[in-house]
Simulated assay, not measured.
Amino acid sequence: MNSLVLLPTVLGGSVLVTAASGWAVDLLLRRAAARHPETPLWHLLRRCRRALRIVLLAALLRGAYRHTAWPPLQDNAATVDRILSLTLIGAGAWLIVAVSSAVVESGYARYATGTRDPARVRRVRTQVTLMTRVVTVVVAVVAIAAMLLTFPSFRALGTSVLASAGIIGIVAGVAAQSTLGNLFAGFQIAFGDMVRIGDTVVVAGEWGLVEDITLTYLAVRTWDERRITMPVSYFTTRPFENWSRGGAQMTGTAFLHCDHGAPVDLMRDKAHEILHNCPEWDGRGWDLAVTETTPSTIVVRVIVTAKDADDLWTVRCAVREQLIAWLVAKHPDALPRILVEPPPGAETAERVRATTQGTRGT
């Protein structure tokens, strides 16, 4: 048969077989997802169909293009083989990463749905995220190595590289000491349960939520939407505050400076009323007491509780604002006062004192 007829036949047949196979696999996945809606695996696997089609097309073309007997392809068979091999390796690595990510995400989704403890969910999420990235890095390294081995020059180079692997390993270890330290610190954070995605932490004087954890860095989102990026080794070598450790429930304080004549008992009753009308207060406990005095004021401390850091902030602000508003409206004399002129009677007493001293002098 003429090569000009075989070429479109082989190419068209490969494309048709690839399209039909991809459609059949997608149809099976859709039916499986419809029969088992509680399992997100089948829906997630549908994201792999593009990589699957590339793998099938590259494999079919690599096995069938020689049968076309087309002179340009026969003359450049080595180059065509290498291009198709590289495509097959790259698409295969993409398919492996996509399938493994779908399986891991499906398992995490089912675990998160059946678990009521948010701390455990955050821990598993952190571990799953890091494991997925490790698999991606390993597959990418293996794929790149396989691609390089398709070139004869790199095969010859491999012998000399293996001969000097010891020296290269020592040099690379010294040069990448910081990177390797962060890498192992990432594994320590993931499986040591030190910090998890979604935890409330205080690092370097900044309060925020752990937004992302990778093998080398950790991102903290502050209350004003800033992102603080820190190496993961920071959390294994320096102390930091993890407010979510051991549970999300928290206890906080609100301080008020008042006059010495402030009605503390009435303030205690008002604070109790404010907390009962505050939906963010979890009801675990509260207290109001005078914790310090100065020559001009007293310090009133209100202790409140909440289910997490966000609600605690809201409760503290509500208690502070409403207590101050109540004092301004009902007991303005309880607020701190600064005397800018002598009190009534002070001028008369000063004159009497001056007159007495003048009489003694004469």
Rank of each mutant, 00 (worst) to 15 (best):
L327N: 03
T132D: 15
L275M: 12
R226C: 00
S106L: 08
T68A: 13
Q249R: 14
D308Y: 08
A109G: 04
P332H: 01
S244C: 05
W281R: 10
A219C: 03
A175P: 05
T132K: 15
E38S: 15
V202C: 08
G173L: 03
E206S: 10
V302E: 00
F235Y: 10
F187N: 06
D265H: 09
T39L: 13
W286I: 04
A354H: 13
S3I: 07
A109L: 09
T129Y: 11
I324E: 13
I167C: 04
A146L: 14
I89K: 01
W326N: 06
I54Q: 12
P295G: 10
D199K: 07
V121R: 13
M1K: 06
P231W: 03
L6F: 08
D259C: 00
A112D: 11
R284N: 13
R35L: 10
T348P: 01
R47L: 09
L27K: 09
D265K: 08
R155T: 00
K330W: 08
T348I: 13
S3V: 05
L157E: 05
R35M: 07
L209A: 09
V135I: 14
W223C: 00
A163M: 06
L323G: 07
R196V: 04
G166E: 12
P72H: 07
V290K: 11
R47Q: 12
T216I: 07
D269K: 07
A69M: 13
W286R: 15
